[in-house]
Design a protein around this nucleic acid. Structure first.
Lengths: 327, 327
DNA sequence: CTGAAAGCGCTTACAG
DNA sequence: CTGAAAGCGCTTACAG
């Protein structure tokens, strides 16, 4: 390229990287030559000389017992956003390690510029480790200490409150919640949002039933709700499988879901939209989350901005399972 | 490291890479020093000098309308196998491109040593492009020409035949198949295997009903099967959602699934094991597939072996939906 | 078997 | 604004 443009390789490098201190004339000649030659700089050489790999690491969540319905959307969001910044995503696994080792190795080998974390819980050792090291990262999920690093999280309480609001507007007065067994940080936040909204809207005393995930579990949970209080006409579930179970059990009991019983789930898993009636559910905005995470990470890598946190509301996707009149 | 071991960096490099032409004495001194210093070679420098990035590229499938229940297992399998070969997986997307551009760019930038392909269909342009270029890759799925490159595929026909065999052994004589609308290369191979096995076991004339994917669609398809032939006691579905729909519709009609009606699906999606009764299904051995693909790719990168193809049988996971006596 | 040297293809001070 | 030079941290012929 430098030969074709008639300048030195140093000038080519500066021009291509948009650096300052290059005449417009030289710049345009370089750009033209690069275009004509369809030049692509070598990633390896750039990485070694520039001390930037243009790679970011993402550790896959442990494979779910039931698969991971959200990985697809999340990965696509991160990859698409990364591409905008000329970054690529390298995935790895922490399976059969202490969870920190793969991060440490990638850092020591200079294999990535930063990390994207997910499945972060309140006592996540990775946060502490990376923050202390000062290595760039951004996390989906936060620890109990939300300072000193960049994170994005989804406010389950706000989501469940929105569900209650929606149900109240449909005229429901007696609600139930299918929750997870305690303690569950994520689950308890959702229940808290539910209870707060019930109180705020001055609804009847709600029923809270606790159960692990699962469609069968949801069926049983529905039965327990009804045996506790026959007046319940609307159910909010902490997770979609429980909600699906409730729908199936209600149908088996000849209850018309939608008209006689409203059901709202959480996560908008694939099955949610293909059950009959389709399930109203709280969807985490993965596309947004992926974009924000990558932006945060880019800022951390550039080192120009302080870390920041962002709390998003899930989106209530209203379908027929919570609509009185099925249009 | 070279200073601590008292040898030159050249010797260190050879010792660490297991190259020939190093005395045992020097080798052990280097290894010990490296161990003590917890030395990790720089990936970028290795890549530039060794002309191997130790990175392999995988293009994410287009995000599915209903999510991608198999991506999780497949990615984990590839990542785990790659780790065994000291390789990392970089994921990218071909979204909004002609499908070839991202591959070409990664190659030109020397960003990866090879590619892992999936979602390969009979007229896949990537195969032709990469094979012609002589760039290393291995494909999950094959084109109509299976020569000249390495691939792994799952034989749907054999799987469906195994399902028929299982059903015949349970005493079923009149079967039905829920198939996809024609033409579908993958779907038609499954139907062909089904029909061949029915004939081979000398069973009654089977019913074949065609429908797109979906739980609702499966319910309707079950209805059509029964209206065509009331004697049908066993159903093989080309995909799990159709099978799930059949189960739900049969239950709604008070047919006892398992005892009175056997149902077998394909793919073993997460919902398959949590429906009631749990669905017998043909599972693609992703763990195996990922391992074989990576092994093939490693061979291609090393350039020592000719390309090869491998056809695997799906595994019939027998659950209560096809068992007469539910134990 | 060993090590000095060249080189991988870039970027970045630095001197002109 | 420009280019010669050094250097990123390794690997690989090559001469000893």
């Amino acid at each position: 390229v430098s030969r074709v443009a008639g300048v030195s390789v140093a000038t080519v490098s500066k021009a291509l990287n948009g650096a300052t201190g290059v005449s417009d004339d030289a710049r345009s000649r370089v750009l033209e030559a690069a275009e004509r030659l369809d030049y692509r700089p070598s990633r390896s050489a750039q990485a070694l000389a520039g001390r930037r790999t243009h790679l970011i690491g993402y550790c896959l969540p442990e494979p779910g017992r039931w698969g991971n319905p959200t990985l697809d959307a999340f990965l696509h969001a991160m990859v698409a956003s990364s591409a905008l910044h000329n970054l690529e995503v390298v995935v790895f696994s922490a399976h059969a390690t202490d969870g920190l080792t793969p991060y440490r190795d990638l850092i020591r080998r200079g294999a990535v510029d930063g990390f994207l974390l997910s499945e972060t819980d309140y006592h996540d050792r990775r946060i502490e480790y990376l923050a202390e090291l000062g290595f760039p990262f951004a996390s989906f999920g936060r620890t109990d200490d939300t300072d000193g690093y960049s994170w994005v999280d989804v406010d389950g309480g706000v989501g469940c409150a929105a569900a209650v609001e929606h149900l109240a507007s449909q005229g429901h007065r007696t609600l139930a919640m299918l929750a997870w067994p305690q303690p569950s940080e994520v689950g308890d936040a959702r229940v808290a949002g539910f209870l707060e909204a019930v109180k705020r809207h001055d609804l009847n005393e709600p029923v809270v039933v606790r159960s692990p995930n699962g469609i069968e579990q949801g069926r049983q949970a529905y039965g327990r709700v009804m045996s506790e209080n026959r007046d319940v006409t609307a159910i909010v579930a902490v997770q979609d499988e429980l909600a699906l179970g409730a729908i199936l059990e209600a149908r088996a009991r000849n209850v018309t879901v939608g008209a006689d019983l409203a059901v709202v789930g959480f996560d908008d898993i694939p099955s949610a939209s293909i059950v009959d009636p389709p399930l109203t559910s709280l969807r985490q905005p993965f596309h947004l989350i992926g974009g924000i995470l990558v932006d945060m990470l880019v800022d951390q890598i550039a080192g120009i901005t302080a870390p920041r946190g962002e709390l998003l509301a899930p989106e209530l996707v209203i379908r027929d399972s919570s609509r009185r009149s099925r249009t």
